[in-house]
Design a protein around this nucleic acid. Sequence first.
DNA 1: CTGAAAGCGCTTACAG
DNA 2: CTGAAAGCGCTTACAG
Lengths: 347, 347
Amino acid sequence: MRRRQGQLLRVMKKVSIKDIAREAGVVPSTVSIVLNGKAKEKRISDELAEKIIALVKETGYQPNQAAVSLRTGRTKTLGLIVEDISNVFFATLAKAIEDKAYELGYKIVYCSTENDHKKANELVKMLSNQQVEGFLITPCKGMEDEVKRLKEQKKPVVMMDRYCDGLDTPYVILDNEAGVNEGMKHLYDKGYRKIGFITSDLDQVQMKSREFAYRQFMQSHQLDDRCIFKIPYVIKPEIAVKKISDFISKYKDLDAIFFATNYLGVHGLEALKAMKLSIPDDLAIVCFDDHDLFRLYSPGITVIKQPIQSIAVSAIQMLMKQFKEQQLSDDELFVTKKPDLLIRAST
Amino acid sequence: MRRRQGQLLRVMKKVSIKDIAREAGVVPSTVSIVLNGKAKEKRISDELAEKIIALVKETGYQPNQAAVSLRTGRTKTLGLIVEDISNVFFATLAKAIEDKAYELGYKIVYCSTENDHKKANELVKMLSNQQVEGFLITPCKGMEDEVKRLKEQKKPVVMMDRYCDGLDTPYVILDNEAGVNEGMKHLYDKGYRKIGFITSDLDQVQMKSREFAYRQFMQSHQLDDRCIFKIPYVIKPEIAVKKISDFISKYKDLDAIFFATNYLGVHGLEALKAMKLSIPDDLAIVCFDDHDLFRLYSPGITVIKQPIQSIAVSAIQMLMKQFKEQQLSDDELFVTKKPDLLIRAST
DNA sequence: CTGAAAGCGCTTACAG
DNA sequence: CTGAAAGCGCTTACAG
C-alpha cells in the first residue's frame, strides 16, 4: 500500500515529520534537527532550514508529543496536586502556576486530594508513570511515602503552602509565624488582650506553626494562651458556625479572635453575624489567608495575605532548576515568603 | 552491552513490559494481552494470567503512557479550557469535571483563555497535537475557527456554559431564558415593576439570551424594557462599582435590578452598600449565577443558580459518547439544564 | 553538510 | 494457546 503521496499536505489528517521531509526533499532527521534549533550546530544551510521552517508553518505541522516523549522522556507537563481546586485559594494558586508554566511551555494536569491521602497517593501514581515531568504539591498528611518515592524516581517535586515534615524536599511556604506575629501585634497595639485562636484539627505544618506562633506571642506578653478552639476539617458549615458561636458565648470576655485560615474566618463571620456582634467594636478579627467574602462583607477585618503570585513563581523556578539538574543551593531549597498584613479601612 | 539482568526488578529505575515478560518467562505481547484484559479472548491460561498480574503488582509496573499513546493514539487526557480558573464558577466547574473525569480514568489539562481568543486559540493548538483526546471548552468570541478545526480533526469537543454561534458542536448550557423568566416572575409577583438590567458588554450567547429574556418579559408585561446598562468586561472593579452607582442614581424610581452574572452582582452589592441602600427594602436584587459573597453578605438576594455538577456530568458524558464514535442523537447534541432559582430567606 | 539506522515501550495483526 | 515482527513518530549517535 503506497502512501497518500498525491494528496495535498494541508488536507491530510496528520502531517508527520516524514511528510515534511519528503516535501522538502530531505530525510526526517534533517527536519528534526532544524525543528530542534540545531541547524547551526549541525551546519545545515540557512536556505534549507528556512525552507523547512516555511513548510512547517504552511502545513501546520505539530510534532507528535507522544513520540517525542517516548524518545526523549520529556512531556512538558507538570502535575499540580492541590487540596481542592474549587477553593479560592487553590484556584488562584492554580491560575498563577498556569501563567508561569505556559510561559515556559509547560502544560498542567491538576487534581484535588481533598485531604484524603489514599486518593492523593493514587493520583500521584497515576501521573508519575512517564506523564508528568515534575510535581507541584500542596501535600496532606499521609503523602510522605509517596513523595519520597517520587524523589527516589528522581522526579522533581516542589511543595507549596505546607510541606511534609521530615522530608528533605524543597518547598515554598509562607512565613506563618511572622504572619501570626504581625497579626497579633496589630491586635495588641490596638489594646486587645483577650485574644482567642480558632484553627482546624488537621495535623498540618502550616496550621501547627500558626498555632505555635499564637501561643508564643501570648506567653511572651504574659497573656492567657489557652483560648484555642479546634474545629474538625470535615464538618457541616452550619455546625462549624454553631460551634464558633458557642465558643464565643462561652468566653464572654474575649475582645479579639485570630482565625488560622480563611474558611474558618468565613464561618466566624457568619457566627458573629448571627450573634449580632459587630467588627471591630464587639470583637476584633484577624484572619490568616484572604477570602473574597471578606472584602465586601467586612472591610474592617484584618487579613494576613499569602503572596500567591510570588509563591507560584518561586515554586516553578525551583522545579525548573531541578529539571536542569542544577542542585538547588541550600538557601533556595526551602523558600519562605513574607506574608502581607492587609489592614482594611473600616467603613 | 548486556541488559541489567542480574538486578532485582524492584530496585530498577523503570520496569518495562519486557522485564515483566522475562520474569514470567513469556514474550512481551503476552503480558500486553493480559494487561489489556484480553487474556480470555486470546485463550491465555488463567494460571499464566494470574502469574503475570501478580508480577505486575509486585514490581509496581506502570505502562509507559507515551508508548501507549504513540501506539494507540489514546492519551486518557482531556483538555479543559475555561475563561479563568481562579474564578469561583470555573473553579467549581473544574472540580466537578475533575471528579467525573478521574472516575473514568481521564486526567485533565486545564488552561484559562481570559476571554482572549488569540491566547485561547494558541492553547487549543498546543493541546491538540496528540496530547488531548477531547476538549471541554467555555468558548469566547473568536474561537469559532479553532473549534471548527478541532471538529475537522475529529477531535471530540463539548462546549459548556455558552457555545459558538453557528457551529454545529455539542454543548451543555443553562436554559438562560427560563432562568431569567423565573427571576423576573419572582420580582413581578412581589410587586416590582421598574426593573433594571445590568449586563456586560461581551458578545456572548449566554449574556445575549439573558438580555433577550429580560426584554421579552418586560415587553410582555407592558413594562419599560430600556433600563439596561452594559458594563465593559475589562474594567477596574472600582470603576464598575462607580458606574453602577451612577446608573442607580440616575434611575431613581427603580425598585429592582436584575444582574446578568455573578461578578456584576458583586459590584452591584458593593455599589448598594456604598449608597447605603438596603436589599430588598430600597431595591430588590436578582442575580444570575451564584457567588460565595452572596451567601454571607446578603442572604436576601435571589439567585439563579447554575447546576454545575449536572453540567459537568452531561459534558463528560457527551464527550465519552463521541469517543465511542456513537453519533449523539439529536436531543443529546445540545443539552440545556434547568437553572435553580434560589430564594434566600432574608434575615 | 546529509543519510541510514537504531530504538524509546508499547500493541496488534499475523503466523504457527 | 504462544511467538516473532511490524510499526506508531520521533531523535540521536554514527557513518559518510
